[in-house]
Design a protein around this nucleic acid. Structure first.
Lengths: 191, 191
DNA sequence: ACCATATGCAAGCAAGTACATGCATGAAAA
DNA sequence: TTTTCATGCATGTACTTGCTTGCATATGGT
């Protein structure tokens, strides 16, 4: 990837994040990238191509993969905190807004599976973790997929609400939120 | 509000929900409403005006207000279930998608406070409820604003994820989700 | 010195977009 | 019956949008 193409992709992704795919014009992409508009079409087939190449770059993805949950300590409190923090550290407001900016009918088909990968990675890793904790006798029997969904939803929900409304909805800091949530989850899980 | 204007608003809101504000054209609004395009501009100042009048109509809002939480039973399990169900019944996938469709730079300033009202209503009502439950000696002392945020986030998160990905992310039904979540929340709250 | 390549610049094009207007028509109110 | 009003229809306007093209210039490799 040459420097010019990268500048174009970065400009496009930034704009999509800030105003959405449809509202992002090729003219503005060129301006932000500091290149002439026709250069866009020499480097890429069309506007959509720019964004699709962007979403396939590591730096324009929230890097939430099953691997980041590898070093679990088999301590419920520490591990749930780690899971939540791992998600929140990677899924920054920028990535939340980018995911929403990509929600255009013209793109949805090609990006939705990619966008879904992050929640999927979290959910399956966490469900697996709970099952193993049960096998170790550390938590009592329950519907682990459902509990994983609850804990993920609350993590996702907080992240999304913060990205959308900032401190206007809740002034609660990430660390406080995690701590207080985990306290409640713990008692519902421990045997 | 005459019938024609209402048809125009309904068409506009439906399209904004399905493809977003910027991608929604006046031509298509007219087509879906079954009127001539120029009629739009006889009834409304401009495209934005149509949508703004729409968001100010009750039927285009998820009717989540503090009043819906009035008939609490002061029974933790029943009440949390009621709170979650009340939100989910009103905040349908259609409303979730509409909220996202309204996220356009041209509209954001005038609609964000309206969109935020629903989470605000839920959060403040639920925090208030927890405080009263504490005063009644039914739950132990905790950071009630934080706990309310956790429970709301998980409710919001599930609703949003379902609206976005349907059953592809989780096949969990609403009722199962509520039941399983509340079980976990309960043990973390009860004294 | 020569040449390939990348880019800027200017112009343009076809389609689309929000919005406007003058006139005809039909239905309802007077 | 006459008048008023809402609407359709056709046409138009000013502007934007994605995308293209031909030519000039600069840069760096050989």
């Amino acid at each position: 990837m040459d420097e010019t193409s990268q500048k174009i992709i970065d400009a496009a992704m930034t704009l999509v994040r800030d105003k959405g795919y449809v509202a992002t014009t090729t003219k503005e992409i060129a301006k932000v990238a500091g290149v002439n508009e026709c250069t866009l079409f020499r480097k890429f087939q069309n506007k959509k191509d720019i964004v699709l190449q962007g979403v396939n770059q590591a730096q324009w993805r929230a890097n939430v993969t099953p691997e980041i949950f590898e070093n679990v300590k088999w301590d419920l409190q520490a591990d749930i905190e780690m899971f939540m923090r791992a998600y929140m550290d990677r899924m920054t407001p920028d990535f939340v807004n980018l995911s929403i900016g990509l929600r255009a009918p013209q793109l949805y088909e090609e990006t939705s599976s990619l966008i879904m990968k992050v929640p999927q990675a979290f959910l399956s890793s966490f469900t697996e973790y709970l099952v193993k904790m049960y096998e170790k006798g550390k938590i009592h029997k329950a519907d682990f997929a459902a509990l994983a969904m609850t804990i993920f939803s609350s993590t996702f929900g907080y992240t999304f609400l913060k990205a959308s409304f900032g401190d206007e909805l809740s002034k609660l800091e990430k660390d406080e939120y995690i701590k207080s949530s985990v306290q409640m989850f713990l008692k519902g899980l421990e045997r």
